[in-house]
Structures are given as C-alpha cells and as structure tokens.
Design a protein around this nucleic acid. Sequence first.
DNA 1: ATACCAATTGAGATATAGTATCAACAGGGT
DNA 2: ACCCTGTTGATACTATATCTCAATTGGTAT
Lengths: 155, 155
Amino acid sequence: MSDDLTPRARRLRDAGHKLTHARLTVLAALEDSGGHITSSEVLERVNLVDHTIGRASVFRTLDLLTSLSIIRPTYLHSSMTPTYVLLPDGHHHHFICTRCNRVIEFDDCGLAQIETDLEARLHVKLTGHLLEFYGLCERCAAESTFTPSTTESAS
Amino acid sequence: MSDDLTPRARRLRDAGHKLTHARLTVLAALEDSGGHITSSEVLERVNLVDHTIGRASVFRTLDLLTSLSIIRPTYLHSSMTPTYVLLPDGHHHHFICTRCNRVIEFDDCGLAQIETDLEARLHVKLTGHLLEFYGLCERCAAESTFTPSTTESAS
DNA sequence: ATACCAATTGAGATATAGTATCAACAGGGT
DNA sequence: ACCCTGTTGATACTATATCTCAATTGGTAT
C-alpha cells in the first residue's frame, strides 16, 4: 500500500485501472508540462523518458484520462491536433484569441452554483467543466480597428 | 446589395471575407446539420451538394468560421476528429457523458455578467464562449454504482 | 456591363495523427 | 509465487488535415 502516489494517479487506481508504467509516464509528462500540451508533445516527452513505450499506449492513456475528467482535449491552434489541458480541480477556464491564438488562463469562474443547479435539473453527476472564452486579445483588437485584412490605406 | 443573406453569411462578409460558393456551401451544411457535426460529415454533405468543392476549401472554411466564433470545434467522441458546434448567439453549452458520450444541450448559462467582468479585467474583446460540463449521465451514473467495469446484468 | 486584381479555389500528393491487431507481458489480489 | 485479466508495444493501416500553385472567381471600380 505505498500511498506515495500523486492525487491523479490515485484517481486512476480508484477508478479501477492499473497503475502501469506507461500510464504513470504519460501522466508525469502531462503534469510536467503544466497543461496546454498537444498529443505530439506528450509523445515526445514520453519518448525521452522511455522510448519503449508505444504510441498506442500514449493515446489510450490520453483517452482514459479524458474519460476520468483528469484532462480535457480542446482546440487552440490548428484543427488538427487537440491540446490537452489539466483540470486541477475538475475545471479549467481560459480565453483564446481567435486571431493570434494567445491563451490567457484564469481561475475563478463562479460556476459552482450553476453546477449544482444543473446536476439537479439534468439528473447527471458532474465531474468537471471547461469554460472557454474567445475573442480578440488587446493587441489584436487594436490592430483590427484599422482594416480587416491587408491593412490598406483608405484613400 | 442583395441582402438576402443569412446572418452568419453576413458576418463573414462584414469581417472582410468573400462570400464564395465553397464557403456558403459549407455554411449551409453546418446550418442544416444543426451542429455537433464532424469535419467528415461536413465534407460528405458538401460533396452531395457539389462534388467539385475541394476538401482543402472545406477545412479552410471551418478554420475561418472558427476564427470568427461562428462555430467552435470540440471533442465529443474520439480524440481523433473534432465535432463542430454552431454558436447561434456566440455561445453554446452542453453536458457530455464521459462514459457513453451522450450530449445534453441547454441554453441558459448566466455568464453574461461574467463576460462583462472578464472583458474589463483582461482587456479583451469577447465574441463568444463555450461551456462544457462533463460527468456521468443518469444511466451511466446508475450503472457505475454497482461495479466499475464488468457491469452487465443488474439483477 | 466589363475589366481588373487580389483573395480564394481545387486537385491530389504529402504529411501527420490516431487506430486495429494480437501475441506477450505485468499489475495486483490471493 | 501464482494466476487471471487488463494492458502493452510493434507495426501496418486508415483517417485526417495541409501544402502548393496554376486557374478561377468575387466584388469593386470603371
């Protein structure tokens, strides 16, 4: 019963999953990164630590962690690869500039009450949430004040 | 100036983009679907209407619409393909069961005040938001009350 | 209408991401 | 230590998205 596990590792085990080397390595890679990491980056980090871990296991672990609301895939950059965010307390919030892809994170969301209401209303058991705001960051908003595309001077 | 455009088409044009056949077709496909549609499904629908429209244009349009906060990619099923949701009034909210992937949508979110605060605090211009709740739906919650994995017959 | 120009397109080759398969292996309860 | 079952890793394979660039088209000025 060595309980020197990280909280997330414990959640994995408590949900009935084995704490395998591959899974713990993926989890460590995610935690080291601090979140906002793509699957390719996870693959890369995992490979540095132990190149015998297969790609399939990494993807399987990402899916597993997602189903446990430990991480959540989201789109930040291209429409190709998801970026995984850690959900420290089951939730995460950020702002994404849809022009330059800058991400601003923040903590408070004031959704506790809404969550409670929703559980009762939809008869569901919530494990977390992700709140994404998007728009233009300060700089991009200023730039698009001039002209939409190729900032041509209006004569 | 034929203004018999859909509101979303107008937003496209107002943002300085051309209303091309390809773009309008993709937009129509999205609107017909009602949202929660994968890129493959969009491709398929577009192809039915006009098979001369290239894949690249479909993806380009999806990215463009995303950058305008007209749609938003999100993960519902696998970690492979994003599912696009329409953002009718710039926002969207849903609950996703992390076990069976069922999606429950709902309208109210009470985030108007939070949005206003955030704009002032982060000095950004918000165009929309996506609020995802996840957890277990009623049925899945009931099932996992018994045994984690092999829960087949509830006697 | 017509002409013009830049934004946009389409085709498909290419790159990238994720999945399927299955024998071999290892976690963890007994 | 043993066993059972969940899990793994290798790789071939499929699915998905991007790149390139000549050709086209939307929209505006004429």
